[in-house]
Each structure stands twice: as structure tokens, then as C-alpha cells.
Computed example of a mutant assay.
Amino acid sequence: MVACVKCLLVDSVLKAGFVRGRQRYLCKACDYHFTEQNAEVVPTRRRTQTTISDVAKAVGVAPSTVSRALNGHTDISPATRQAILDAAHQLSYQPNMLAQSLKSRETHTLGVLIPDLERPFFATAVSGIQAVATEAGYRVMICQSKESYRTEVNNVQALIASQVDGLLICHSRETENFDHVKPAACQGIPVVHFDRVSNEVDSAKVILDDWNGAFNITEHLI
């Protein structure tokens, strides 16, 4: 990144061709031209995430102590635990979910694939799934196929690659081949089909009995 030599702004600087073999710049903020010879290069700030070691350094304890405190171990004094929690909050510490999942082999994430979230039935289903999952301490990743088989395949592959702990699937209208779901079973990922199901995949199935439902309603009315 290059800063303007006149106003010192960075975001307003654009490349503006070459002069005698040197890169020429234009600052939109002050309408000033300059070359790379007198330009000030500003290093790009890399995005960093606060780690347990950062919290430990701030409190003056070992990283293992921070880890035990954040995970609720009882062998940490109340004063030390509070100091660690305060430091974690001040440093905006967030647990590294990828590292935790690699250690525990669980991501506490469920993948949900539906045809279209805008349809009332699927919106209601997702709302119920979300409520139950949240109560159980799980997050939910929601994908839509938009009734496209190819989109469904890509979404299932992405969810499996994300190492979800379970899949809840309602297939698209185009789906006639279910090979893309079978790797989940091979990897030990539980699969639940609902509404539109497949008998080719070993999974739990939730099916609405529309015929008997309509029959019972009609019988009740007459």
C-alpha cells in the first residue's frame, strides 16, 4: 500500500501510469500526482486473532491456566479466573473453533439443506431445527438448493468438508441420484431426510403422511 506524500492518506491513492519508467500515482483526496521515487510504502496490516497465549501474557499466567479457566475447570482460583475472563473480553478473544474441532473431532455444527427458505414450510422447519439445535449447544449451517441438483451436490460436499456433526436434508425436485450423500454415511456423519426422502441412503427419515392427514380432516368435517 502507498501513502500520498502530500496528505498521507492511503485509501485514496491510485496508480496513474508510468513516468520515465517509474510508477506514477494520483491521490484522489488532494488531486496530487507523485512517483514511486518519493512515495511512502505503508505495510499492509495483517488480520490477526487473539490467542490463548496473548491472554496468558496479559494476565501473567501460563497458557494452560487460561485454557483451564475458559473451559470451566475448578482448580483455578476465583480471582485468577475473573482476571482471565476480563483479559479475554478486553482482547476480544474468541476460541479457535477449527482447532477445537480437530482436537475433539466434533464441530457442534449441523448442516441443513433445503430447496428454498422462502417457502413457509421450509422456513418453519428451519426455525424448529434452529431452536432445538441451539438448545442442545449446536450451531446450524443452512444451504438452499433452489431445486437444482448440481447446487445440492455442491452444498452437500461443502457441508461434509466442513466436518458437520450431522446432516438434515430435503432433496431438490431434480435429484434422482443420491451418491453425493453416501460419503456422509461412510464418514460416520448421521443423516436425516425429511419431506423428500431417499431409500437409497441409510438414514433416518421424517415423512408427512399427507394422505391420512387429509382423510382424517375430511372425516372430521363430514
Rank of each mutant, 00 (worst) to 15 (best):
S77C: 02
A16R: 07
P43Y: 04
A214T: 06
W211I: 12
R105Y: 05
S148V: 10
G128Q: 04
T35P: 01
T51I: 12
F178I: 09
G137R: 00
R196D: 09
I84C: 03
C30Y: 02
R20Y: 14
Y93Q: 00
R105A: 07
G137F: 05
T124L: 14
C30A: 00
Y93C: 00
F121V: 02
K28H: 04
V61T: 08
L8Y: 15
A214S: 08
F178C: 04
I76A: 04
T48H: 13
A204I: 12
V140P: 02
L70C: 03
G166Y: 01
I84Y: 06
W211H: 11
V19Y: 15
C170M: 07
G17E: 09
M141E: 08
H193R: 08
D179Y: 03
D75S: 03
F122P: 09
I222N: 10
A3G: 06
Q100G: 10
R45K: 15
S104V: 13
R20H: 15
H73R: 04
F178W: 04
R47Q: 13
W211C: 12
A158L: 12
D75L: 05
N155C: 11
E147F: 03
E152K: 01
T44I: 15
H89I: 14
N199M: 11
T124F: 15
M1E: 09
L8R: 15
L167V: 09
A56T: 06
G72T: 01
P78M: 02
T51W: 10
R81I: 06
S172E: 09
A16T: 05
T107H: 08
G213Q: 02
A131V: 14
A29L: 02
E106Y: 06
G128M: 03
P120C: 11
D75T: 03
Q187T: 03
I207N: 11
D11W: 05
R173T: 11
T74G: 00
Y25A: 12
N199F: 14
S198C: 07
D86M: 09
S92C: 14
A99K: 00
V181R: 00
L168E: 12
C30G: 01
Q37G: 04
H171W: 04
A56Y: 11
D11H: 03
F122M: 11
V10Q: 02
D54R: 01
T50L: 10
E36Q: 02
L208E: 15
N216D: 13
S203Q: 00
Y25C: 09
D209I: 05
A16W: 07
G60P: 10
I169C: 05
P78N: 02
R45G: 15
Q187Y: 09
T218G: 10
E118L: 12
N71T: 06
N71K: 11
A58P: 09
E106T: 13
Y25F: 13
G72Y: 07
A133C: 01
V10C: 02
H171D: 11
H171S: 12
A58T: 05
A161Y: 04
D209G: 04
R150K: 12
A16L: 08
S127A: 13
K28M: 03
K15I: 15
S92D: 15
D209Y: 05
D165Q: 02
W211T: 10
Q163M: 09
T218I: 14
Q82L: 14
T124C: 13
R119V: 15
V19D: 13
C170V: 07
